[in-house]
């Protein structure tokens, strides 16, 4: 009976840990990433996930002409700075944060509407232990050109 109770508690803890981690990710995105949009209006979409060192995430989004955009990318303090690449439909690289002093924001506008692909990369750490894990978030702000 005690063992069953222990298992139930364990299951509950695993559930709570998962939910708490996600809730922390939302709070992190709102607290850290959102202010970086500055005078741009946040579009309201939510993109945040938990990544480990060496892992990647991708994002597909259509961007429209006559709009100005700011992209803000943030990663938890325990992770190395996140790198991001922006590619067009032909997979040509249009922007690399690594080539721009690891900037966490990018301001851009488009002459013609395009579907772009954003690749977020957490570089592998130097230590050989368990890879660090934390929240990564990307947010978009816009304003009329």
């Amino acid at each position: 009976m005690k063992v069953n109770r222990f298992i139930l508690i364990l299951v509950a803890l695993v559930f709570i840990a998962g939910t708490t981690a996600n809730a922390q990710c939302k709070a992190f995105a709102k607290k850290t990433c959102l202010p970086e949009l500055g005078s741009y209006t946040h579009d309201g979409n939510y993109h945040a996930t938990i990544l480990s060192e060496g892992e990647e995430a991708e994002l597909y989004k259509t961007f429209f002409s006559d709009m100005e955009y700011r992209m803000s990318v943030c990663s938890a303090e325990n992770l190395p700075p996140v790198e991001f690449l922006v590619l067009d439909a032909d997979r040509n690289i249009l922007y690399s944060s690594k080539d721009n002093n690891n900037s966490c924001t990018w301001d851009f506008k488009l002459q013609a509407s395009q579907q772009l692909r954003v690749v977020l990369k957490i570089p592998s750490g130097q230590n050989t232990g368990i890879p660090a894990q934390g929240c990564v978030s990307v947010m978009f702000g816009f304003r009329i050109d």
Binding site: G44, L51, E56, A57, E58, L59, Y60, T62, V119, F140
Partner: peptide, 18 residues
């Protein structure tokens, strides 16, 4: 070449505000 398999893929639509 350094882009690996993504752990997570976000598909983003224009939001209601946009």
């Amino acid at each position: 070449e350094n882009i690996k398999q993504a752990e997570k893929i976000f598909y983003t639509l224009p939001s209601p505000l946009e």
